[in-house]
Write a protein that binds this DNA or RNA. Structure first.
Lengths: 337, 337
DNA sequence: TTGTATGCGTTATCAT
DNA sequence: ATGATAACGCATACAA
């Protein structure tokens, strides 16, 4: 039988109200002696409050939901780790949900999280969105969107990456390395990151005096599998082509297929990824990529979410973090300019 | 204001008791007409029960805890994914915890999970254990141990891998490929998997008529970093050496350092990993490894845990899964035998 | 400074 | 077949 506040009250010869105050540190008008006495008994009896009962009356569960599209993508794993660490530091627990990039599954999870009365949700949304359906869902708890876009009513803040500048830097790097045709192997254009990267890609081409050709924009999913298949779909020569990829998984798949076809990377073909997941360092040739502060994104998203919950959110609830170009072997050839 | 069972009762002109019965499908002695009437109103009003209140009285939260050592290791990521999928299918939510292979952190998480009244815990324990301290913790909910060993009182079942046979197969493969000196680069020997693999390693050597030399057993952590440093510590020639590694991360680090020192893998040196994480396919040379059914381990652990919760656990609560040797480039040389 | 009483939303027991 | 009511463990408004 678990010990309750009543037991403590009886043992201490005080009321449950007094014990409750002491447990919650609202001891402004409780005498030092009773505080001492009760604390001692609490310690002795190893009493811990029942969270469920507490939540019933406070309407707060100290619990958050975390929804990410793909736990197998190290980028999201890092986000999750950052989120978990910060939540833990602030005394929150996290319900963990994997949407598999499926909006319906995301809906289901959101409902289930609301039923379980989480205080808030941190969401990296599924790729394909549906503005109308999302708007219809009645969400009365705050959501912080991270990385991906979403349209729920509950969204009260977001942590993003400067994808536009990141893409610009990556494409520009390929151009400066003398690759002639620059191909963008994009993730789903429904996602804001992809849209922004496309913008950056176009701007970089434009600034370099290159023409933008739709033939050079290939759209697929954020999966390695897509990267592996991509060259099969191209009907032009891959001589001196620079590939700018939507993420590292795509780039890794692409490099794999290029090697199998005996293309030389980086001599003939350059490849740039996005995310800088740790595998990118390990493959051969190692991958030039745009490093995202993924752990930080998770960490700060939870921080923002809890700040919103505490209503200390006078500051703006939108934050944009920077990327950094990490140059490795996959583009490291002598500049032909 | 959220709608409650009382509201439904009032609208239907029945008691909350009746509504409760219908909500929980205990309708043996409720008339069809009231069932129909109440169900209709529930649907109209979009009523969902308050889980906290329900849990207060049923003492069940339909919530589980999942503790793993390292979310950044794809092996555990896969376990987590399997766990989440099965929990979701069975109507449970998962609190997700990362112990960073730190026993103290594991303790803290277990306490916090118990406070949050999870129904059970699935645990892949931190590497270093402390039998005495573990035994002292009073745990009144079932724990299923997966992969790693642990000594808590609450442990009611386990899902393991046949590490002994796996190691035997891996070492035997190296021997059959003609590598002369077989070195075991082990993870922490406090973990049962490492102990079992050591047993398998020794048995394979013995069966091949080789002597067991402690100089050939290097112990470290399950991290890539350890693998990268390992050859620095060896003072014998690496000519024709076969490395059997405690996991793939170690093997990947080892291969990286071997390449940097211009050793030829697999011609001069063979490397076998353990886990077969997906990166092993992508590095160069690709890694021969022992595939573990990691997703399945997570999936079945949750299944077992919930079975124990439901008291349908007449079957034995211990299961041992098999490994499979996946041969790739890192050992693929012409047999010198 | 302390205690009493009520309510949070549900399930379960026992009458009716 | 249905309903009244206690109980779960706590926080809080208000009274003392």
């Amino acid at each position: 039988m678990k010990i309750t506040i009543k037991d403590i009250a009886k043992l201490a010869g005080v009321s449950t109200a007094t014990v409750s105050k002491i447990v919650n540190n609202k001891i402004d008008d409780v005498s030092d002696t009773t505080v001492y006495k009760v604390r001692k008994i609490i310690k002795e009896k190893n009493y811990t409050p029942n969270y469920l009962a507490r939540s019933m009356v406070t309407k707060k569960t100290k619990t958050l939901g975390l929804i990410i599209p793909d736990i197998r993508n190290p980028f999201f794993t890092d986000i999750a780790k950052g989120a978990e660490d910060r939540a833990n530091e602030l005394g929150y627990s996290i319900f963990f949900c994997n949407s598999d990039d499926d909006l319906d599954k995301e809906f289901t999870y959101i409902n289930s999280l609301i039923e379980k009365q989480v205080d808030g949700i941190m969401l990296a949304g599924a790729a394909k969105r549906d503005r109308d359906r999302e708007r219809k869902i009645n969400i009365n708890i705050p959501i912080v969107a991270v990385d991906r876009n979403a349209y729920y009513k509950g969204i009260k803040g977001s942590i993003e990456i400067d994808n536009y500048t990141g893409a610009y830097k990556g494409v520009n790097h390929l151009i400066s390395k003398g690759y002639e045709r620059i191909v963008f192997v994009s993730g789903p254009l429904e996602t804001k990151p992809s849209m922004e990267r496309l913008r950056g890609y176009k701007k970089a081409l434009k600034d370099a005096g290159k023409i933008i050709d739709n033939e050079n924009i290939i759209v697929g999913t954020y999966e390695r599998n897509f990267g592996e298949k991509v060259i099969e779909t191209l009907d032009y020569s891959l001589k001196n082509v620079g590939f700018f990829c939507g993420n590292d998984l795509i780039a890794i798949g692409l490099i794999k297929s290029l090697k199998e076809k005996n293309y030389k990377v980086p001599e003939e073909i350059g490849v740039v990824g996005f995310d800088d997941i740790y595998i990118s360092l390990l493959i051969s040739p190692s991958l030039t990529s745009l490093r995202q502060p993924s752990y930080k994104m998770g960490y700060e998203s939870i921080e923002l979410l809890i700040k919103i919950l505490d209503n200390n959110n006078e500051e703006k609830n939108k934050k944009m973090l920077k990327t950094r170009l990490i140059i490795r072997e996959s583009t490291n050839r002598i500049n032909l300019d």
